[in-house]
Design a protein around this nucleic acid. Structure first.
Lengths: 340, 340
DNA sequence: GCGCGAAGTGCAATCGATTGTAGTCTGTCA
DNA sequence: TGACAGACTACAATCGATTGCACTTCGCGC
């Protein structure tokens, strides 16, 4: 294992002191050193293949040019686009993401936080957002490490939040179904301790209540997964009578499960029951039937979240702010006019 | 921004020297300090909320407990499961992943490498593997930083590689189609500079050549995407006559595009043309039709890759080794008996 | 001819840990 | 009682950078 070349090696090779090397190689101090010396230093660095040691630099400067990204599960299809957005913003500004998955378990989340804190990340982007994990995050925040939450939201937070407009999304879905003639509409809600799905459920009830000629029913799926969606739909089909002609699912995965359930009950989607998803996850258009869903700007959520975090890091302080991004309904094959 | 508590603060609070604190808090040196002192130190650390600074520690110990993960694109559905596997192995061993996306561009890849090298990652897991990016990786490897490649493979490498058995996967797909009575089979190959898709193409030609009663055709898709797959299928349909009754795609995305193309030409899948994908990406079973595909153990590839890397890091040296993981054909709705 | 300012560079402290070495203290045994 | 071993703990160097300060050198003006 060849020893890595340090600033001292470069200094020796260029015949100057390491302080001069440091100044010659840093853009904002370059003016302090003679142009010719600087050139000699740069050449020496190149010849030796010098790679500055960010950990030494970070120790001195008290930053790591690194941000911690905490998500429940990369394999959940809504997160990759968010991460791309985050990276897209981080990279040109010189930061790198340290990734941690939590699987939604509070203990794992705490461990991840701790591990990232030890590595002295300059800030956190948190996408776990159960309504009950405030303490952990508040802890980091209390230690003076900037935090921004993306997608989900954990109650009234002292840190910025980037989220999509759940109320409008649900409203658009309901109105779409109403225009198609649906009057019995069900909502397959997500767990109540996720801010996103709770907001959607509340919006659903509010919008439905504001219409006079519709009947609403709500059932909570145990998780945001296809299996949980199928189970919830099974239950809805055995319980609700007359059965709803349309279903709005808490997210696309739940919608997928609902469609599977319908099929296993010998019902057709959309002819017998229309289904609307939420998120417009990748490949939602390639499902069978192609999923009508509320599209949320996942990539943009990542970009904006990262931007807000970096701004806070560089400003040295941050204030709470909520950025709500617009959503759009994408109509595809899983919804059609209500059966008569 | 409250100043973070250091080992010196703990030392003062416990009335000992920081060296003692260090020894008291590290498992393998704990025996050197009096049990009672150690307890006092631990209590002081807890009271003050002391979080050891890994960057200082890393500077002294010359490691960062961090590995760089370089992938083309998190949003490509095969990578999230690989990353989960990587994380699963890293986390219990105390390592964290620094993530970089390259979008398949050599320049970005080089920048990512450099950036991770600056951050003194202890090793690299590389999944980009174009046949032509040897130099960059070899560079890092030459600097004494362990590297393992996962999924893809870049020629004859001096570092370990974890990959899936492309030859057998393709053989299984061809035999499956053959049993269903297909005799005109096409391969929608991927770009030739990806090792995976090149191996698949070579395997396809070899297997087909070993059968006497079949006609093979091969067309190269410009990229591993649905759009490229659709374009390739369009071309195949206009060019090949009589048209093949079955198609094996370079991966699931290309298969997806092929199916779209068939539909737009008024052809049914699988009744008119059977389609086989590759990878069994998440949700492949929920497409329309559900995709028959070769399942590769994505998560396991990640786990094994990470394991090999960590072993190399901890051993202080590594030797080339190739781990080839088994694949299985998953038969679903997109293949059926050949039209007569 | 002397002093002064500016430019350029070197010195040394610093960031927060780890660890080899040296020193202190206690108890024991001759 | 004094020497010595063993158990703890303190000191200080070190990792690889950055940066305030001091110093040298040179040119210029009075």
């Amino acid at each position: 294992m060849p020893k890595r070349v340090t600033i001292d090696d470069v200094a020796r090779h260029a015949g100057v002191h390491k302080a001069t090397v440091s100044r010659a190689l840093n853009a904002h101090t370059q003016a302090q050193v003679n142009a010719e010396t600087a050139k000699r230093v740069r050449e020496a660095a190149r010849e030796l293949g010098y790679v500055p040691n960010f950990v030494a630099r970070g120790l001195r400067l008290n930053h790591s040019m690194t941000v911690g990204v905490i998500i429940p599960d990369v394999a959940n299809p809504i997160f990759p686009p968010i991460m791309r957005g985050i990276e897209e913003c981080l990279q040109p500004r010189g930061y790198t993401a340290l990734l941690a998955n939590t699987d939604g378990q509070a203990a794992v989340e705490e461990a991840a936080f701790h591990s990232l804190l030890q590595r002295r990340v300059d800030g956190f982007i948190v996408a776990t957002g159960r309504l009950d994990d405030q303490p952990v995050i508040a802890g980091a925040f209390g230690d003076g490490v900037p935090v921004v939450m993306v997608n989900r939201w954990a109650g009234s937070a002292p840190y910025p939040v980037v989220t999509a407009d759940n109320e409008r999304g649900i409203r658009a879905a309901v109105e779409h179904l109403h225009e198609l003639g649906h009057r019995r509409i069900a909502h397959l809600a997500g767990p109540a301790n996720f801010s996103t799905t709770r907001q959607r459920a509340e919006a659903f009830e509010a919008v439905m209540a504001s219409m006079t000629d519709v009947a609403a029913s709500v059932l909570e799926a145990g998780a945001l997964s296809a299996d949980a969606g199928a189970a919830a739909m099974d239950e809805l089909l055995t319980r609700a009578s007359p059965r709803p002609t349309a279903v709005i699912a808490a997210n696309d995965l739940v919608a997928l499960g609902a469609i599977r359930s319908l099929r296993s009950h010998g019902l057709r989607c959309p002819e017998d029951v229309s289904v609307v998803g939420y998120n417009d996850m990748p490949f939602a258009a390639d499902f069978w039937p192609a999923l009508t869903t509320v599209q949320i700007p996942l990539r943009e959520i990542g970009v904006q979240g990262a931007r807000m975090l970096l701004d806070a890091i560089e400003a040295g302080h941050q204030e709470p702010a909520t950025l709500t991004l617009p959503v759009t309904l994408v109509v595809r094959g899983s919804t059609t006019i209500a059966p008569s």
